[in-house]
Write a protein that binds this DNA or RNA. Structure first.
Ligand code: ZN
Ligand code: ZN
Ligand code: ZN
Ligand code: ZN
Lengths: 133, 133
DNA sequence: TACATACTGTTATATTATAACAATTCTAAC
DNA sequence: GTTAGAATTGTTATAATATAACAGTATGTA
């Protein structure tokens, strides 16, 4: 008798997977997530990927494309994942979501010369974090 | 008796694969590349991935992270792939490299509050191109 | 209740990428 | 030209990431 977690609109699997990602200090990969939720009855890749897809869609998590890994959204601002920016340490792999209103506004209003109107962007910065440099 | 193509520093496999990507109007995936160069004697994934890695490293091509696909660099500016920006149509999958000096300068000089100094960035914009909207 | 929609469970498979190792070719220095 | 190191190549196998397809269950609304 699985019950939806209506208080926040997440289903059972979505909530389990979101909680795991949200608690993690670093981005999690899909199969790492799978191994960690098997004790909770989530047994197969499609269950993980479906929850991830939905969580990305509603903006609760973001995918770090260069790492095929997922982080919880730390910004109430970046609604439904339309404007994401991350700083990524090339040494320790730390990922931090950038919340910079000026940057976000600058990019959101950027228009391509060739007449394309953008609906969404993703920006990934790479360097060395404080600890690693 | 394979001979290096010293005129541009690319090895035989690198040149074959670069030429294919450079001629393509759209981003190419690694296995699409593989199928297309088998007639030229490149038979296995590692041969393709090694050439791709090198071409990315020297800035002749870029990887579109959100698509796991590769495009030739159209900018003489973005040396050794340190500052890349693309516009991607979500309908027809067209990808265009953005060459905008102001954007590039703005992002290159952007510094994270948390004390991280960036060496590189990749920006991907999504929307509908002229044809598709 | 009955229906539509979203979510779940499951098996199999497709796609993307790398490990490991032996051989060859290139470059620069001797 | 010989030699040694670095880069590149060829090859087999396998790892890692992601989706197709289908049957079943739960939920919200009428
Ligand atoms: Zn966010
Ligand atoms: Zn670090
Ligand atoms: Zn470029
Ligand atoms: Zn289009």
């Amino acid at each position: 008798m699985t019950r939806m977690h209506k208080e926040n609109n997440l289903s059972k699997n979505q909530q389990i997977i979101f909680d795991l990602i949200d608690k993690s200090p670093e981005p999690l990969k899909a199969y790492t997530i799978l191994y960690n939720v098997q004790k909770k009855g989530i047994n197969a890749p499609p269950q993980v990927y479906r929850a991830l897809d939905k969580l990305v869609e509603i903006g609760k998590i973001h995918k770090i494309e260069s790492k095929n890994a997922f982080v919880a959204c730390k910004n109430s601002d970046c609604e439904i994942s339309k404007a994401t920016a991350f700083s990524i340490c090339e040494s320790c792999e730390m990922v931090d979501e950038i919340s910079d209103v000026k940057l976000s506004k600058y990019l959101s209003s950027f228009n391509h010369k060739k007449g394309m109107k953008f609906k969404r962007f993703n920006l990934e910065f790479f360097g060395l974090c404080k600890k690693c440099k």
